[in-house]
Simulated scan of single mutants.
Amino acid sequence: MNLQDDAPLSTSKAREADRAEQELADPKGDNLVGRSVTINRPREELYAFWRDFSNLPRFMDNIERVDVKDARTSHWVVKAPGGKTVEWDAVVTEERPGEVLAWTSSEDADVPNSGRIEFRDAIGRGTVVTATIAYDPPAGFIGKVIAKIFQREPAIQARRDLRRFKQLMETGEVATAARTHKQLEEEQG
């Protein structure tokens, strides 16, 4: 029996991490992050939801908005540490509906990045969604440390975002652990 490993190539202990980076059409960034999650929904449905980039802020905590310019180009506004934002245009570099969506940032991006989302059938369990992202943090190593302190580091965010995507697609909502600050103010006010 041939068992397929659901782990992203970028986390492999073998030389598979090199292959993961090679699969990015135009790798931008020295930091490679890979995460996978199994979601109990058909891959075509998950792909269609993700492909509508305006849906991404619904489950990606750091994304303020994604403005779709045309079928291949979008403009991203993302929260950064210290209440700031970073912005870039992204171009779709590979698209196989229901299977793969890859992108790369424009040359003038605040955070150079590229990535790939793969949707693969998990027989009897739904779909394995794998995100592989290469990026360069603003301000280099110091920026990466600051982002980690503020929980804005892409490796942390990728895990959380995929977990929220799973919740949203399986239940229709993203669970929260507690009342928001705004809700608390409204109750006290």
Rank of each mutant, 00 (worst) to 15 (best):
M1Q: 09
N2M: 08
N2E: 10
Q4L: 12
D6G: 06
L9G: 08
S10G: 14
R15S: 09
R19E: 09
A20N: 07
A20L: 09
E23I: 09
K28T: 00
G29M: 03
L32M: 10
R35W: 00
S36H: 04
V37P: 01
T38R: 04
R41T: 06
E45V: 12
E45I: 13
A48Y: 03
W50I: 03
R51H: 01
D52I: 03
R58T: 11
N62H: 08
E64M: 13
V66E: 02
T73I: 08
V77A: 03
V78T: 12
V78H: 02
V86T: 09
D89T: 08
R96M: 13
P97R: 03
P97T: 09
V100M: 13
V100Y: 00
L101A: 08
A102I: 10
T104M: 11
D108W: 01
P112A: 04
P112F: 04
N113G: 11
R116A: 15
A122L: 07
I123D: 01
I123S: 00
I123A: 08
R125S: 10
V128D: 02
T130C: 15
Y135T: 10
G140K: 02
K144N: 02
K144C: 05
V145A: 05
R152T: 13
A155P: 09
Q157N: 14
R163F: 09
R163M: 11
F165N: 01
K166S: 08
Q167H: 04
L168I: 09
M169G: 07
E170L: 12
T171M: 10
R179Q: 07
T180E: 00
Q183M: 14
Q183I: 12
L184H: 06
Q188S: 09
